[in-house]
Simulated assay, not measured.
Amino acid sequence: MTATSPLENPRPLVFFAAFSAGGLLTLMVHFNGELARYGNPLFSSWTAHGTGTIAAIVFLGLLYRRGRVMTEGRPPAPLWAYLGGLSGAATVMLSSTAVNSPLALAGTLSLGLSGQAIFSLAADHWGLFGLPKRRLTARNLVALALIIAGSALIILEGRNPA
């Protein structure tokens, strides 16, 4: 099974959702950084995940009342799929620490994007976590180099404001 390119079958809603998630991620990192500045990264993580847990319970309760929660006929999730909360908690603590450093919000997010790009290319290449294997191309590596170069520009330029 070969993965199709998003450009072969464009879905505007998917592009909008991904772009919006990036904006929400920026807000989340900023809000969590503020919580960490007034408390500490652990407090920030607990608060963010506590709020998310309450929102999830309310949302699932609404879905359950409408009969839209379906688990029958679906295979159980693999055990590693439940580690998302652990990586999310670590992400909040690490980004809350970094955003309150000289990296600031833009540097934290640009390095985070670099890390996401590197890990996602590795996951695609080796087929980690059940993903279909995808061969790395020169285009992927050029895009990665541009992301890293952009991150370096944001961080280095941020140190010497005009």
Rank of each mutant, 00 (worst) to 15 (best):
T4P: 11
T4K: 15
S5I: 06
L7Y: 15
E8I: 10
E8G: 13
N9Q: 13
R11W: 15
R11N: 08
P12Y: 14
V14Q: 08
F15C: 03
F16W: 07
A17R: 09
S20E: 01
S20A: 13
S20Y: 06
A21H: 00
G22T: 02
L24C: 07
L24F: 14
L25A: 14
M28H: 06
M28P: 02
V29I: 06
H30C: 04
N32P: 01
N32D: 06
G33Y: 00
L35Y: 07
L35K: 01
A36F: 02
G39V: 02
G39E: 10
P41G: 00
F43T: 08
S44W: 00
S44T: 04
W46H: 04
A48K: 00
T51C: 10
G52N: 03
T53G: 10
I54R: 09
I54C: 09
I54P: 06
A56C: 14
I57A: 11
I57D: 03
V58F: 13
V58M: 09
L60E: 03
L60N: 10
L63Q: 15
Y64P: 12
R65E: 15
R65S: 14
R66Q: 13
R66M: 07
M70N: 14
M70P: 03
T71E: 04
G73L: 04
G73D: 07
P76C: 10
A77V: 06
W80Y: 08
A81W: 08
Y82P: 02
L83T: 13
L86R: 11
L86Q: 11
A90K: 08
A90H: 12
V92N: 02
V92P: 01
M93R: 03
S95W: 02
N100I: 13
S101Y: 04
S101Q: 11
P102N: 01
P102R: 03
A104D: 11
L109T: 01
S110I: 12
S110L: 02
L111K: 01
G112C: 09
G112R: 03
G112N: 11
G112Y: 07
G112P: 03
L113D: 05
S114G: 11
S114T: 12
G115Q: 03
G115T: 07
Q116K: 08
I118M: 12
I118A: 11
I118V: 14
I118W: 05
F119M: 15
F119L: 12
L121D: 01
A122G: 14
A122F: 14
A122R: 12
D124A: 14
D124R: 14
H125G: 10
H125N: 15
G127A: 05
G127I: 09
L128P: 02
F129L: 15
P132N: 05
K133V: 05
K133D: 09
K133Y: 12
L136P: 08
T137Q: 13
T137M: 06
A138T: 15
A138K: 09
N140D: 12
L141M: 07
V142M: 11
A143N: 15
A145I: 01
A145C: 11
A145K: 04
L146E: 06
L146W: 03
I148E: 03
A149Q: 10
S151W: 02
A152Q: 04
L153V: 08
I154W: 08
N160E: 05
N160T: 13
N160Q: 13
A162G: 10
